[in-house]
């Protein structure tokens, strides 16, 4: 409990620091909004023209898209320091985290929140809402399904978070990890906005194992919409998210020990 209290104190402090730069916040909100809108525009262009992708209609894909963006937006909001973590190792700033009597990950995450990225969560939620309304009306999705989808979007944030934590932990070995992010976060998240069935087998396997973004949305939604899978999908997805997070944290701890034994 005290861990949460400390995190909250740090998080509030980081927001107060942010508020000194109101123009930055405004412009960043607008630019990040433009980027997510642009991203949606590409999907909309394809879906409006062709109506179906791999047997999924625009509302069904909208569900996937909304969930992926809620999860990603939450991760980017709360774990932005993790996203660029290699800088801490490059400049030896990790030292400052080690001299505090709390887990390094806690103090790291508390250093910087990026509320301007909540716009992505909002956009994801709107698209998810519109899609779900239609799917409820035509009876493809039931009320339980809707609740599950909402809960899963938030739970799903654990998956990009863990992927990012793993990438950050790599920095303890290879120092610079900026290039790796494309593989571990950007590309998998882009891929998760469409039904995984459209991808070549090797890519699909990858997205359900090493880079398990399929469990953010595709696996449970596939079952909820009656497109395959079984009820196990509903239990399995959050279990994967939690298990993967624990494994990622284990790697982080190992990396931390390595940092301490090799120095910067």
């Amino acid at each position: 409990m005290s861990i949460l209290r400390i995190y909250a104190r740090l998080a509030v402090a980081s927001l107060r620091a942010k508020m000194q730069y109101k123009l930055d916040f405004l412009v960043n909100t607008l630019l990040w909004g433009a980027l997510t809108t642009a991203d949606f525009l590409m999907l909309a262009a394809i879906m409006l023209r062709f109506e179906r992708v791999g047997g999924w209609d625009i509302y069904e894909v909208g569900l996937l898209y909304g969930m992926a963006w809620i999860a990603t937006g939450l991760y980017r909001t709360f774990a932005s320091e993790l996203h660029n973590f290699d800088q801490y190792v490059v400049h030896g700033e990790f030292d400052a985290l080690l001299v505090r009597p709390w887990p390094t990950l806690l103090t790291l995450l508390g250093r910087n929140l990026e509320p301007h990225r909540l716009g992505a969560v909002l956009q994801g939620a709107i698209i998810l809402g519109l899609s779900a309304r239609h799917l409820l009306a035509v009876g493809t999705l039931d009320r339980f399904g809707l609740v599950y989808v909402l809960a899963s979007s938030f739970f799903g944030a654990l998956i990009p978070f863990s992927l990012s934590l793993i990438t950050a932990a790599f920095a303890f070995w290879v120092v610079r990890t900026g290039d790796l992010l494309t593989f571990t976060i950007h590309a998998p998240i882009s891929a998760s906005q469409y039904p995984l069935t459209i991808y070549p087998r090797w890519l699909k396997t990858l997205l359900l194992s090493v880079l398990p973004v399929g469990f953010i949305n595709f696996i449970p939604v596939q079952y909820l919409l009656g497109k395959g899978g079984g009820p196990w999908a509903l239990v399995f997805s959050p279990a994967v998210a939690v298990g993967f997070t624990l494994a990622a944290y284990g790697l982080w701890r190992a990396g931390e020990r390595r940092y301490q034994s090799t120095g910067s």
């Binding site: 030292d95 080690l98 001299v99 020990r257 301490q260 034994s261 120095g263």
Partner: peptide, 13 residues
């Protein structure tokens, strides 16, 4: 390096 080992930032060999 000594200070970093004294403060737990680094592990001694």
């Amino acid at each position: 390096t000594t200070i970093k080992m004294m403060t737990g930032i680094l592990h001694p060999t």
